[in-house]
């Protein structure tokens, strides 16, 4: 029974993270920009939020929670603007730009953390220690964090914006056929910028949601440990649709949670290495990709820089 409760706790935690970040990827790709930089955006969001937590250690908890979440989101937005600028305005290769942001993300986070620790007597440690208790509360015997609730709210908002408003329709048009969208007076540049910035917002929040509720010390040498890439897999698995993404996020989260609790429950008797559970979501999405790619629902124009002259 304790095993099950632990499983639910971790599955909810990871599920919220994957949902947030995969929705971020979805927004960007529907506008026509491949966002491979999610890993880097998450790291930057996480480090910004965690640093605020450290600096505000003596403030009232409610203020701390709200400020740190807002700062994490803002950091994600600012960082994703770099991707938007390179891929929309300068028409650079989106995958290369995103890879560069991933490379920079962990490096920048480490520089910031080490600099903070050096100035506050923590030596050259790559770890941050913060108080995460205001983020966590209990429903019955299950531990829940604020990000689970935020993720569900943002899922509803995302779905509504994407499928029930003019803005969403226009944004999706820019990812399917930007020239056609432009011919009816939609500003493709604005829509693509909006898509990437929303994805930065969700990515930054997701990074913070991954780091803070689970532990109170985080080693930034590992960045966000591949969660950004896993979220990309969730997005593809979910076929770029928010509700399917939510289901897939939960499915992937259960596997990731299994890896964490394997040793302490009955699964330990199977004597499988943790890594096997960690591998499974990736293998599953590889197989699904192989069989569904022929009728993939990926936005048609993703990855192609918008060129007004090409019709």
């Amino acid at each position: 029974m304790t095993g099950l409760i632990l499983l639910i706790k971790y599955a909810l935690l990871y599920g919220a993270v994957l949902l947030l970040v995969a929705m971020g990827g979805m927004w960007s790709e529907h506008s026509g920009v491949i966002n491979i930089a999610l890993e880097g955006i998450m790291t930057i969001g996480a480090v910004a939020g965690a640093l605020i937590l450290c600096l505000m250690a003596n403030q009232p908890p409610a203020l701390m929670v709200i400020t740190s979440i807002l700062v994490a989101c803002a950091a994600g937005v600012v960082y994703s603007a770099l991707l938007a600028f390179a891929s929309i305005n300068l028409k650079a290769d989106q995958t290369i730009g995103g890879t560069a942001l991933n490379l920079m993300g962990t490096a920048l986070a480490l520089v910031l953390v080490k600099n903070y620790n050096l100035k506050h007597g923590g030596g050259q440690s790559p770890k941050l220690t913060y108080n995460n208790s205001p983020f966590i509360f209990k429903i019955g015997s299950i531990t829940v964090n604020v990000f689970v609730i935020l993720a569900i709210i943002l899922l509803v908002i995302s779905f509504y914006l994407m499928y029930k408003t003019k803005f969403g329709l226009r944004l999706r048009a820019c990812g399917e056929h930007p020239q056609a969208a432009a011919s009816v007076g939609i500003n493709v540049f604005v829509m693509r910028w909006a898509g990437v910035l929303i994805s930065g917002f969700l990515g930054g929040l997701g990074g913070f949601a991954f780091v803070v509720p689970s532990v109170s010390i985080w080693n930034f040498e590992q960045g966000v440990a591949g969660m950004g890439f896993l979220a990309l897999a969730v997005m593809i698995f979910g076929q770029w649709h928010p509700l399917r993404i939510a289901l897939c996020a939960l499915f992937f989260a259960v596997f990731k949670a299994l890896a964490d609790i394997a040793d302490s429950t009955f699964l330990g008797s199977l004597k499988l290495a943790k890594e096997i559970y960690r591998m499974m979501p990736f293998i599953a999405s590889l197989i699904v990709l192989a069989f569904t790619s022929k009728n993939s629902k990926a936005p048609k124009a993703e990855g192609i820089p918008y060129d007004k002259g090409m019709r």
């Binding site: 560069a100 490379l103 993300g105």
Partner: peptide
Amino acid sequence: PKEISDAVSGIIVY
């Protein structure tokens, strides 16, 4: 911190 050099190579790729 030594990671500054990683950041520089990240900027170069960008």
